[in-house]
Write a protein that binds this DNA or RNA. Structure first.
Length: 548
RNA sequence: GCCCCUGUAGUUCAACGGAUAGAACGGCGGAUUCCUAAUCCGCAAAUGGAGGUUCGAUUCCUCCCAGGGGCACCA
């Protein structure tokens, strides 16, 4: 991927120019090397052995001769053929000026050109409380939404409510049983019904509202009422949890509405016209096998109800009709098998291949007594997101999930999570931010005036250089996080940046009344760090406190 | 059986095909008359196993082992 850091961009351009002089043009990298190998490093000579048909160090020598200039204090060839650059302090200072100049806008890019995209996540059966597993998905989704906005996409997010299936009938009946219990009427909650205590609370509320109106009565009308009531209550609960999480959605989309408003029938009509469906055993099947090496799938059951697959196709058709250019679905790994079928359905509808992207994340498992268990709402085996938020707080919860690569399974050990909550690295990053705020308060007290963008040319020692280098890579980090769907890129970066700042802070006196110019220079650097930390944390949905 | 994801210090996580595999917590030992010690400095400690591709592999390929998930007229 092309880098966009100020300095790395410049080095890249220089190298490209040198290659052009030698009649070559190929891909190479510029990156920050391990300590002791200069500020920036390129593998251009090693990659070049293929193109030049000469040993890397010889290629490097030719290039280095053409690269020397005032931007670089030194250029060295090292190891197997790396070209290591030590850049001038003027170049590093340009980064600080760039950050300060753009302020809050730093990091913004227009890569999306207003492309209309949608992220769908946290979609859940509205049958119980959100669990910590949902928390993981919310954080991944929220972070990507903020990132894509930052990168110039026109973004909306949405929750899909599976309010149409059999599970809703079970929920309604389970609630009805709980409601009747309040009148001393005992009925069994079915084997796969919902036994959680929360339905007792909902039943009490319902009794307060309607009294004994549905006592002992169960028919289609009553079922419809209990479905609506239960789903509504679950939805209200979900929204409250989202709010506690610092999360919000532009839209809540009902699966049921797709059946009721005729979207499902519209698509069936289209598929029939295109001869993509057939009847067998009383059900209606989609000819998936005509597209890929998989079995055909049922769209309409023999009892006439649509399958989840059917409504999901209708849902994505609806998204397309709403004008989204691209949609991103964040699903748990148990939906993995659903992807190829959905891709086929999109193709059958004539949508472009890149219309639907599915971002999968592995499961959150519960550790209990050394044993791993899948969380299950139905079995009542879960830790609610509310509990976690209550105990650990929103910032630590969000940061905890953001650090973990979506492709990795997550063993959730509640005791460990609580115990480590005060050790959460989020505080390390936030502390750097608070320290900087404190510096500015102190500066005022000491009568040191902060002059934005002035004295930056005084920044030159090793700690200062280290911080400036880190600042330069922020924009790259955002791009990578967005492109690879990896919030963890941002957390890693922030921890690095915070570390370089803490080091700088410990080893240098920033506020020195006898040297106002140098103090101001260091305040400018601190300010730049603060801007970047705040931006990074805000993309993660984490607060940036002024004091800690 | 077939398909997908994962295996890195005691623990939780990083590492764009690159140089000495980074942090944090935990362990051991240090630093504060001065801007917040939620910090800094030092020590011990890791790529599941076997092959292969490459100048170079934690990263790509094959096999094995281990964990998770999927293979419904459930969602």
């Amino acid at each position: 991927m092309e880098g966009i850091g100020l300095i790395r961009d410049l080095i890249r351009e220089k190298i490209k120019g040198a290659l052009k002089d030698l009649g070559k043009d190929y891909e190479f990298k510029v990156e920050i090397p391990p300590e002791g190998f200069g500020d920036f490093s390129s593998n251009v000579a090693m990659v070049g052995t293929r193109h030049f048909k000469r040993p890397p160090r010889e290629v490097a020598k030719d290039l280095v001769d053409r690269l020397r200039g005032e931007e670089f204090e030194s250029i060295e060839i090292a190891g197997p053929g790396f070209i290591n650059f030590r850049v001038s302090k003027e170049l590093l200072q340009r980064v600080v000026r760039g950050v300060l100049d753009k302020g809050r806008e730093f990091g913004k890019k227009d890569i999306g050109h207003g492309l209309k995209v949608q992220f769908e996540y946290a979609s859940a059966n509205p049958t119980g409380p959100l669990t910590v597993a949902h928390g993981r998905q919310i954080v991944i989704g929220d972070t990507l939404v903020k990132l894509y906005k930052e990168l110039g996409f026109d973004v909306e997010n949405e929750v899909y409510l599976n309010d149409a299936g059999r599970q809703i009938s079970l929920l309604a009946y389970s609630l009805w049983v709980r409601y009747n219990e309040l009148f001393g009427i005992e009925n069994e909650i079915p084997e796969d019904g919902y036994r959680g205590e929360y339905l007792v609370d909902v039943a009490r509320k319902l009794k307060d509202e309607i009294g004994d109106k549905y006592k002992g009565v169960w028919n289609d009308e009553v079922e419809a009422f209990f479905k609506d009531y239960a789903v509504n209550e679950m939805l209200r609960w979900m929204k409250k949890t989202f709010e506690k999480m610092g999360s919000s959605f532009d839209n809540y989309f009902s699966e049921r509405s797709l059946i009721e408003d005729g979207t499902v029938n519209e698509i069936l009509k289209y598929f029939k016209e295109k001869n993509l469906v057939y009847e067998k055993d009383g059900a209606l099947w989609l000819k998936v096998s005509e597209f890929i090496d998989e079995d055909d799938k049922v769209l309409i059951r023999k009892d006439g109800t649509p399958t989840y697959f059917m409504t999901d196709i209708a849902y994505h058709y609806n998204k397309k009709m709403r004008g989204f250019d691209r949609v991103y679905d964040i699903w748990g790994s148990d939906h993995h098998g659903h992807i190829p079928r959905m891709k086929v359905a999109m193709k059958a509808l004539g949508f472009p291949d890149d219309f639907l992207t599915v971002i999968l994340h592995q499961f959150v498992t519960l550790k209990k007594g050394g044993k791993k268990l899948r969380m299950s709402t139905r079995a009542g085996r879960f830790i609610t997101l509310d509990e976690l938020l209550e105990e650990v707080g929103g910032d630590a919860t969000r940061y905890f999930f953001a650090r973990i690569d979506p492709s990795k399974p997550l063993d959730f050990d509640i005791d460990l999570a609580l115990k480590q909550s005060s050790d959460n690295p989020v505080y390390y990053v936030q502390y750097a931010h608070a320290r900087i705020s404190s510096l500015f308060r102190q500066a005022k007290e000491k009568g040191i005036e902060f002059k934005n963008l002035e004295n930056v040319d005084l920044l030159s020692n090793d700690h200062e250089r280290e911080v400036m280098k880190r600042l330069d890579t922020f924009e790259d980090v955002l791009l990578e996080a967005a492109l690879y769907y990896l919030p963890s890129r941002i957390t890693s970066y922030l921890e690095d940046l915070a570390h370089s700042f803490h080091m700088f802070y410990t080893h240098n006196t920033i506020l020195d009344s006898s040297n106002p110019d140098l103090s101001n220079a260091r305040l400018n650097l601190s300010k730049a760090v603060q801007i970047v930390i705040r931006k990074g944390l805000s993309i993660l949905g984490v607060s940036a406190p002024e004091r800690m």
